[in-house]
Amino acid sequence: MFEARLVQGSLMKKFMEAIKDLVKEANWDCTGTGISLQAMDTSHVSLVSLLLRSDGFDPYRCDRNISLGINMESMAKIMKCASNDDVITIRSEDHPDNVTFVFESPNQEKVCDYEMKLMDIDSEHLGIPDTEYDAIISMPASEFQRICRDLSNIGDSVKITCNKDGVQFSAQGDTGIGKIALKQNAVIDKEDGQVSIELNDPVSLTFALRYLTFFTKATPLASTVTLSVSAKNPVAVEYRVDDIGYIRYYLAPKIEE
């Protein structure tokens, strides 16, 4: 059988919120390592990859590797039934037709049990190559969310330019141009609020704001986001989640014809 109990159940709710608008259905792959998911959006423009390590659960039991084929909208609806302070347990048999989600209140006075039908999903698994990125930008996740929101008012795309002066996000539309420049800040003792840039080569790439905005749904999961950019390659947007794992998004760039 498979059983994974997450004391901080709100994390599962947040992971769900971070993928449900991007991915319609996906396999949650459960192994001894933990629970992982890889899926593309319906347009195949972006890819999401997440890992919830087994040691983030208490207890975690996986007798046999299984894939839980799940409709995200249905699971999101069920996750909304869990309170933020609930303990969430995911449970299924070795050859499952359905999965059970159990939500326990902290004092265990209330226990909710939701059973959901599984789907047969024939998903394509993509190999993500190791890439030497031209620039790796770390910034507060809330700052990145703000930039995507603000520039969405100006245009459909954002041009990310990274050089020795810092990183610039710019958008262009019928009404004009918006530019947001961030410099690496020198505050050492305030790690969460830092912008840091690891620059190997100056780089400039354009991405669809619609997808980056979907990615920022992961903001409640982490204080920091990392953007890894390389010429003519997808950007990797990573949110590392304390004590359990990560959610990474990849977005193909827009290329000038």
């Binding site: 593309m40 347009s43 195949h44 423009v45 972006s46 890819l47 394509e124 698994h125 993509l126 190999g127 993500i128 190559p129 795309s157 354009t206 669809a208 390659n233 997808p234 990849y250 977005l251 193909a252 760039p253 827009k254 290329i255 000038e256 014809e257």
Partner: peptide
Amino acid sequence: VAKQGVISQYFSSL
């Protein structure tokens, strides 16, 4: 005009 790429151009099937 910029053209949106797809992810499978960059990542291959396993």
